[in-house]
Design a protein around this nucleic acid. Sequence first.
DNA 1: ACTTATTTTAAACAAATGTTTAAAAATGAC
DNA 2: GTCATTTTTAAACATTTGTTTAAAATAAGT
Lengths: 207, 207
Amino acid sequence: MKKDVSTEQKIKDAARKVFMTKGFSGCTTREIAKSVGINVALLNYYFRSKGKLFELILEAALSDFVDSMVEVFKQDLPLESKTRMLIDKEFEFLRKHPELPLFIHAGLNQESDAELDQSNFLGRLHKTGIFEECEKAQEEGSMRKVNMINVTLLFMSNCHFPIMSKKLICGIYQIDNQEHEARLNEHQEIVKEMLINYLFPNTNKHA
Amino acid sequence: MKKDVSTEQKIKDAARKVFMTKGFSGCTTREIAKSVGINVALLNYYFRSKGKLFELILEAALSDFVDSMVEVFKQDLPLESKTRMLIDKEFEFLRKHPELPLFIHAGLNQESDAELDQSNFLGRLHKTGIFEECEKAQEEGSMRKVNMINVTLLFMSNCHFPIMSKKLICGIYQIDNQEHEARLNEHQEIVKEMLINYLFPNTNKHA
DNA sequence: ACTTATTTTAAACAAATGTTTAAAAATGAC
DNA sequence: GTCATTTTTAAACATTTGTTTAAAATAAGT
């Protein structure tokens, strides 16, 4: 019964890779099975259907995202340092999984129901105490008074979009991967400074 | 031969709507045909194939985007006013076509070749003189010295992402459409202030 | 070793899909 | 009205696709 890696896990890994790059309806069960080296029927033996398998992968992807955020929020650091760290971690994480943001957004649109809070993402974030921490800082006046949803939007916009827009940017500006990487590295610093200046306006700027 | 609207155009309109919401492989030619009220064969009579039709729609969508940018850039206004106007126009445009950003990014990933600069987007932008205008402002010191690709990224990130992430945000924060709209309206102002402060740091803030 | 349960496969199924063919309907020219 | 051209349709074609069935191979229990 024991293998190096269980068949079930091998299928999940392959499915993740294929779904990520091609989307749910952009690939076939046979394509996934082939990339694992197994029969199509085995897919439905372990998971009941293509759709069920996809839901699993999507949920896991979302979870990965929240995990990387939680990890930073839990750190015992001043808010401003956490902000820098969050941005750095996000860029680092997304450089390793550049297809993830697009996959998640496209995936959520595919599933009309989108039972997104089964995994209780909001609860996991709350447990880190980050919301109270921001609230306190906002009352103290060290942090700008902005709704936390808007704060989230600011972070995600400026971290996720630069990664997911690679093809568009390279296409419009006619640049290659190397140049794009350079722009991305610079952007990471730009975003850090811009967001910190905006959210913590009273801090001395190092300029 | 003359109709109120030509069949060809009706197909394009329907295809645009369907492709936008479901993606290339997320819909069928029959689905498009049905929504026009015509036979499947007529699709391939006017356009040669599903793929060719899709390319047309995608190209047009990209063109719409650039058009709305060009329109603002051509205005005879100080850079800072143009910035405000660009952000307002982008939000306005995207509220009307919220599926567009995701459609474009997913579409570009689907087409491996992505002959994106057939429409010469860069050239159209150049012709507005916006690049020279920014370069001059940067030398004068009124605008922060940031590569124009990064400037583009800043604008797109902060305008496009908030729109395309609606389902994700509503799912995580468990908010309804109305609350999301309120966040979006506020975000529009946030983005304007943040970007202007960052790009034109020497201007007096109205605070 | 024999039996039972689990894992894997080959083959088949029915439905869906992109595309084509050939004929009918509509339109325009004269 | 007749003929030729354009537009539209119904039907068919060959694949593809998600899923199932039934049997074979493997592992586990005793």
